Deep mutational scan, measured.
Amino acid sequence: ATNIVGKVKWYNSTKNAGFIEQDNGGKDVFVHKSAVDAAGLHSLEEGQDVIFDLEEKQGKAYAVNLRIK
């Protein structure tokens, strides 16, 4: 899926990971530091509006192509 709108639920820069809550009510999506880095960002803030694509690896959904809304 592409161009999904959501809000950062939480992001821990020590653990280099967090979750994004989908505005469409879907399951929360894992976001890794690699996606944050690829977006040219240093970190994510709780409640921040984002747009992202979903990629599945080994049955788990990940946020990729992250951008700030």
Rank of each mutant, 00 (worst) to 15 (best):
T14G: 11
L41E: 04
F30N: 03
I20D: 00
K27P: 15
D37A: 13
S43W: 12
V64P: 01
A39K: 02
E45N: 11
I4N: 06
K7W: 08
G6Q: 01
I51Q: 05
V50F: 03
K57I: 11
E21W: 11
T14V: 12
K9P: 00
H42I: 12
F52M: 02
V64G: 03
K9F: 03
K27V: 11
L44I: 07
V64K: 08
I4A: 06
H32A: 09
V50L: 11
S34F: 10
T2F: 14
N3Q: 07
N16M: 13
V36C: 03
E55C: 13
H42M: 12
K7Q: 05
A1G: 11
I4S: 05
R67F: 04
N3W: 06
A63M: 02
D37F: 14
A63L: 04
L66D: 00
K57Q: 09
A61I: 15
G18A: 03
N3H: 08
W10Q: 03
N12V: 06
F30Y: 11
V50A: 02
S34H: 09
D49L: 15
T14P: 05
Y11R: 02
K9Y: 04
A63G: 03
L54E: 02
S13I: 12
G25D: 07
K15Q: 10
Q58E: 13
N12P: 02
H32S: 11
K33Y: 08
A17R: 12
S34L: 10
W10K: 04
G18M: 05
A63P: 02
T2Y: 14
T14Q: 13
V29W: 05
D28P: 10
F52D: 00
N16T: 06
E46I: 15
H42N: 12
V36Q: 02
T14L: 13
F52L: 02
N12A: 07
E21S: 15
A17I: 15
Q48S: 08
H32W: 06
Y11K: 02
A38I: 08
N16Q: 13
Q22L: 13
E56T: 13
V31H: 01
A35G: 03
K69R: 12
Q58P: 06
D37W: 14
Q22A: 09
V5C: 14
L44D: 00
R67E: 03
Y62R: 08
D53W: 04
I51S: 04
L44M: 05
A17D: 03
E45V: 14
A35C: 05
H42R: 12
K69L: 14
K27N: 10
S43E: 10
E55P: 01
V29S: 02
H32K: 08
I68H: 05
K60V: 09
D28C: 11
E55G: 06
N12M: 08
F52H: 00
A35Y: 05
I4D: 01
V31Q: 00
K60W: 11
L41Q: 05
A1L: 13
K9A: 04
Y11W: 13
